[in-house]
Amino acid sequence: MNSTVIVFPGSNCDRDIAVALEKMQFKNKMIWHKETKLPKSDLIVIPGGFSYGDYLRSGAIAGKSLIINEVIKVANQGCLVLGICNGFQILTETGLLKGVLLRNKNLKFINKDVNIKVIDNNNKFLKKYKNNQILKINIAHNEGNFFTNKDHLKELNEKKLIAFKYCDENGEINEDSNPNGSIDNIAGIFNSKKNILGMMPHPERMIDNLVSNTDGTNLFSSLLN
């Protein structure tokens, strides 16, 4: 599998995701945002960080960068795209994913390990997880409060496009287990074709027991088969 990580000024999880991808045997390339051509890729990752210092809105400037036009083109042709944290924000700004990520409800930057539940594993990204499996994954964001309109929310539920929801250690999905105010505790969503996944939690930080756990590993190994 060939993967490509897009790097913006202010990206700061680009190397972490590269380490994760290479550990899982992806052949990875890093591509600077000013490039106008993508290498042949099976997976494109838009990493976390603070592209352009979060100027205007998180992800707004990166969402109009030169390389993004190419990402939109191949994404519409079915290429797999994964946006993590700021990458998720960028994907919503490009329109590849619907909805928006607002400022956290408590107005605080939240950096902690949280529990999330796998809502639907019938897709290329999550097939190695079980439905309702609870994962402990790190979040680190100021704007992770997912919001969308009623029609899109209905579509997300009916077409099974919700990847993860925040929950507690027993899997309860409620206001107490919602760290940032996201509508229906949503932590990650797919586009309607399920080739694009945007998520606020950082699976690339959960690939090694020495530093955390390995709950993120199956996301990458799912993509390999």
Partner: peptide, 8 residues
């Protein structure tokens, strides 16, 4: 195109 996010 850029300055406003029309969703919100």
């Amino acid at each position: 195109k850029l300055l406003v996010n029309l969703i919100i």
